[in-house]
Computed example of a mutant assay.
Amino acid sequence: MTAEARRAKIVELVRELGTVRVVDLAERLGLAAVTVRRDVATLADNGALHRSHGAVSMPAGGTSPTVPEGRERVVGMLVPTVRQYFDEIIDGARSAAIAVGARLVLGIAPYEAGDDRAQVDQLLESGVDGLLVTPNWTPERPDGHSSWMRELPVPTVLVERRAPVDSVCVALDSVSSDHRHGVMLALRHLAELGHGSVALAARQNSWTAFQVRAGYAEGVRLLGLEPQPVIDIERPGRETEAVAARIAEGVAAGVRAVLVHNDQEAIQLVPVLRARGLHVPDDVALISYDDVFAALAAPPLTAVAPPKRAVGAAALELLLRRLGGGELPVHHVELLPELKVRASCGGEAV
């Protein structure tokens, strides 16, 4: 079970059994006691449970003390899309909400629409107690002229975004993936496999793409790799042939490794490269960034996996702590991605 699923089950069991020892919960769930103690501590910090002397129970009245009597907490969540990457973030937030008896309400402001404020206003009118917001920020407008978010009437947590230090939005809580660290993981792995130069093929139209590009420039410098011009993916999903041609040129010049943002682009590239006589991983090592569908490719793609579900869950939990009142400093939380090593980079798959 995921952490969110475990916690939802713990709350369900405590609600059913009343006061129960943590060790008994662990036995019923078939889990290690240390794991259940950790989950119980998180739930207690959020006000979902009460714990005392090795036992756990529902808070007085059977609900979180931070929830108004007779009403569940309602959290609004604004995302740019419900496909691929954000599916998992939404799922993490939803599972965390269920675990503490809260309800998630979703709003969508597509990248191209630029209507973040209208969608947020709609969520506020629906009566949400707090907001999880992924604003439509771009490299050219890193805070998207979003100073209005600082004045929102309910607590707000940025999700997969972190405001620039000179923005008024820096005073907002945020939970995001450290994409620069994720890129460093990929570059270091390829360097350890003997590659002295790694190409980057990346999109240009999202906040994540900007972070990946910045991480590439920094990682190449720190690892002493020979830098390469970034292969721009200007029309995602529609210029695979052109990207493959650039990669083939690099292979001919001795650049036999490439990091591709994102899974869709990487999966589409494999057969197009094969048609050019370049096989993955024999002729070119390939790592994808996102790890939504990378394991389903042929061959399975090594991929950087941002902690998507954990980002959604941590953002929801942080917002509930903020709603609980009390002194709490502004949190800027960055969670580290993992590298899932598979067949496409020529290293030992795990």
Score class of each variant (00 low, 15 high):
L124R: 01
G18A: 08
Q119F: 10
E327I: 12
M77A: 01
L185Y: 08
V243F: 04
V170T: 07
T2Y: 12
S147P: 01
G18I: 10
R276A: 13
E334L: 14
S147Y: 02
A275K: 11
G130I: 13
R83W: 05
A102G: 03
R51L: 09
R256F: 11
E72L: 04
V82C: 09
R188Q: 15
R28E: 07
T156A: 10
E317Q: 14
L339I: 07
M184V: 05
E69K: 02
I10E: 15
P329I: 15
E234R: 15
V56I: 06
Q122S: 12
T134F: 11
G346V: 02
M58V: 02
V82R: 10
L316G: 10
R221Q: 15
D263G: 04
R221H: 15
V170P: 00
V284F: 08
V230C: 07
E226D: 05
Y289V: 00
V258G: 12
S57K: 05
T42K: 00
A202C: 15
A305C: 12
V350H: 09
Q211I: 04
G194S: 04
A303K: 01
G324I: 13
S197A: 15
A275C: 09
I108P: 05
L43C: 06
H195Y: 13
G127W: 07
D116S: 05
G70N: 01
P300M: 12
V159L: 11
E27D: 11
R213N: 04
F293T: 03
V243L: 13
L158M: 07
L193A: 04
T2D: 03
S146K: 00
P139R: 06
N205K: 10
R15N: 09
E125D: 09
